[in-house]
Simulated scan of single mutants.
Amino acid sequence: MTANPASQPTPGQSTPSQPAPGAHIELESLPNLRDIGGYPITGGGRVRTGVLYRSAALSRLSPADADALQRRDIRTIFDFRTEVERTAQPDVVPDGMHVVLADVLADAASAAPDEMLEAIKDPLRASQLLAGDQTAAIFDETYRQIVSSDSALAAYRSFFTDIADPANRPALFHCTSGKDRTGWAAAALLLLLGVDEADVFHDYELTNQYLPRSAAAMIKKFTDGGGDPSTLTPVLGVDPKYLRAALTEMTSRFGSITGYFRDGLGMEDDAQDTLRAALTA
């Protein structure tokens, strides 16, 4: 799915004062970093900028890039990863920032997409894991869990409730690669705020531009080890059919985006209105 050309600027297009919605923030040690603001809202207005950022994990954050985050006045970091992921690659947390742990897949047998990311260190294992149609099945099931499992609902309830409080903003949220658990958080929020669905899919798919660029060395090592680089596509990118599966699960379980926030996350209409007021202008 592509973005609505009437409402969506060219990706990367910017002015000195107002970058285009979804523009990549270039920090060498923090992949897939962007402000989720700037998107137009149906009926008028835009999502606020400088308030909420999404990224991959901060496990390789350099001192210079930590300073860059501090200059954006980020107060809170929301970490959607499992305990296993956090232990293996703990975040580097800049001074003055508070971390909130919100383990989306705590109920799942595994954090499958990011286990795939770990598996590509071994080209043979990756080729076996990513063979045939099983990759699509794994991602499809993971996205359904992201929407409706008990741990996911608890994690996203904490996240959305916390970011409504100005004391916790500006904030940054992430998982390991910043594309699946993070992608759903961004998509659900943008839909609630009134962003056109085409623009929501556009924001989701920007990962396909941003994440592979930061993984060039990983891809080369994989290829040099005898791996087929085409098998990395589902690991280093996103597919709109997975977000569509999440939306189908949401509609089936909760009826609509407002039903998801109300019945799934326990955020009544007034809490949803507070979130909209905080993040739109």
Rank of each mutant, 00 (worst) to 15 (best):
L129K: 06
E197Q: 15
L130P: 01
D273G: 06
I138N: 15
E26M: 05
D196K: 02
A167Y: 08
D224E: 09
A137Y: 06
A281L: 13
R157E: 06
G226S: 05
G255R: 14
V195Y: 05
A109T: 09
Q272F: 07
R144F: 00
F160A: 00
S110Y: 14
T274K: 13
V238M: 11
D91L: 00
G225V: 10
L275M: 03
L172A: 04
V200E: 03
V200P: 08
F160N: 01
L33F: 10
A188K: 14
G45H: 03
E115C: 03
L153Y: 07
L117V: 08
V99W: 11
D180Y: 05
S151A: 04
D270H: 15
T161S: 14
D122T: 03
R253P: 01
L192Y: 03
V200I: 02
S230D: 05
D263L: 09
C175Y: 11
R157G: 01
E118Q: 11
V99E: 12
R276L: 04
Q272R: 03
P166C: 03
T280L: 01
F80N: 02
R169M: 10
A171M: 08
C175T: 01
S62A: 12
A154N: 03
A167Q: 13
S14Y: 12
D79P: 02
S252C: 01
A167D: 15
A112S: 10
D114H: 13
P166K: 11
G96S: 05
L275Y: 02
P113Q: 07
Y143W: 12
A246R: 13
K220G: 13
D91K: 06
Y156H: 04
Q134I: 14
D107A: 08
V100F: 07
A185N: 07
I138W: 10
G266F: 15
L192H: 02
R46M: 13
G44Q: 08
L247N: 11
G266R: 08
S127K: 09
D91T: 05
H174F: 01
P40E: 06
A109N: 14
G266L: 14
G44H: 06
L236K: 11
N168F: 01
T135G: 11
T231G: 04
L192W: 05
R75P: 07
D67F: 11
D263C: 09
I74A: 04
A88L: 14
T49I: 05
L192D: 11
F78T: 02
R60C: 12
A56C: 02
M218C: 14
D270L: 11
P113N: 06
P166D: 15
E26V: 03
A64N: 14
P19M: 06
L206E: 06
D162T: 09
S17M: 10
A102F: 12
F80Y: 12
A277E: 10
V51K: 14
D273Q: 12
K121D: 12
L33Q: 15
R125E: 10
F201N: 00
Y242D: 02
V99L: 06
R125D: 02
F159K: 01
L211H: 08
R46I: 13
V84D: 14
H202I: 00
T231Y: 04
L191T: 08
A3E: 04
V51F: 00
E85R: 00
L101W: 10
P9F: 10
L27H: 08
D228P: 03
Y39L: 03
A131R: 05
